[in-house]
Design a protein around this nucleic acid. Structure first.
Lengths: 206, 206
DNA sequence: CCTACCGATCGGTAGG
DNA sequence: CCTACCGATCGGTAGG
């Protein structure tokens, strides 16, 4: 009983994961819609129908790319970001995690979801709906964090959580925009200091 | 001497403009890279090689799409925006023009250049370079407006013009992001009030 | 501005 | 996971 035979199933899973990982990186640079089975096959060294067999359809491949990117975002931004004491520290920490995720080039094309939103915002269909749902989940998460900080007395309960969320999201989105377009690490510093100043402004007496 | 014969050349120009106009709209929704000669031909009612003949190559068509969009942006945002007294009123006016341009759906896919930057920020090549150059021109324009307002005593000369520009650009970019993704006109109101508050904050004594 | 075509590549299938 | 293939579409060309 060789180890190879009992674990044969994981070989297929590993190949699947290897192709998907490459596809996610490529999609972050060129867009989910510009992924083709042929180029993916060429770049990973498998046959085109070999790649195809792992996903069943191009649409399915695209959805799996998005799901894989979501898992990475969940790990790098959400989990790291929530690993701080409740209230204001958690808000500071999650936006810091967001900027670190951009800074460390977790995806070669910058924030995967900034690109994904831009690619599918004006289209209709399954992917557009998934992107809207994913963004709404982020909005809800941030609103919850802000409301908790309000109930802790760290942020004035009279302020509109959506307004603060809008300002913070604008800063990190624009940081990604400048960082990726100009390939300039200084953008990250400006993002960090602007987030800090914005949070400071909203937590002092108004 | 019929009018038709003396003006024959303008028929070709009009066809060229008609195809290009359709291409710009399509590109604002689906991206410059997803434009194909075949679909453009089908949707405008010309033959594929008829469309091709007007542009000479797909690359050339893409560059003409970007140039045409730039002219529209120049007219709708820059010209309208600069039509105000020098100094602070001009800064307020240009960001108001920017938000109006988003609000009135000048392009069906939202701000053409937000999409274009996202599509080509992480790629290399001619279009990437053109996009970087175009964005730098915007940065220079805004910096000049802010410096003029500083020399007029409307903004503290000690503040970094790039920081104020970063904050204002972040707001309008994110307004476009929310407006197009959620198709929610309320985003425009939030963008306007946030721009106003930001300018107010930077023009009071600090 | 058209028809008729070129080789390359697309997503997907058959059969193993 | 492979080879060999399918019809459709790609950018581009020839010739008018």
């Amino acid at each position: 009983m060789s180890r190879e035979s009992t674990n044969r199933r994981s070989d297929g899973e590993q190949t699947h994961a290897e192709i998907l990982d490459h596809a996610v990186r490529l999609a972050s640079i060129e867009g989910v819609n510009s992924i083709t089975l042929g180029r993916l096959a060429e770049q990973t060294g498998f046959s085109k129908s070999g790649v195809y067999a792992h996903f069943g359809s191009r649409e399915r491949l695209q959805m799996e790319i998005i799901e894989a990117a979501e898992q990475i975002f969940q790990r790098e931004v959400i989990q790291r970001g929530l690993d701080a004491p409740e209230g204001l520290p958690r808000i500071i920490n999650i936006y810091d995690a967001y900027l670190s995720y951009i800074e460390h080039d977790v995806f070669p094309g910058g924030c995967f979801f900034a690109g994904l939103v831009s690619e599918f915002d004006a289209r209709d269909g399954q992917i557009h709906e998934a992107v809207v749902a994913g963004r709404k989940a982020w909005d809800e998460l941030v609103r919850g964090l802000i409301e908790t900080a309000q109930s802790h007395g760290e942020i004035d309960p009279a302020v509109d959580p959506d307004q603060l969320a809008f300002e913070l999201d604008a800063i990190v989105d624009h940081t990604n925009f400048v960082y990726v377009l100009y390939r300039d690490p200084v953008a990250i510093e400006r993002g960090r200091s602007t987030v800090s100043a914005t949070i400071r402004r909203w937590t002092l007496q108004r």
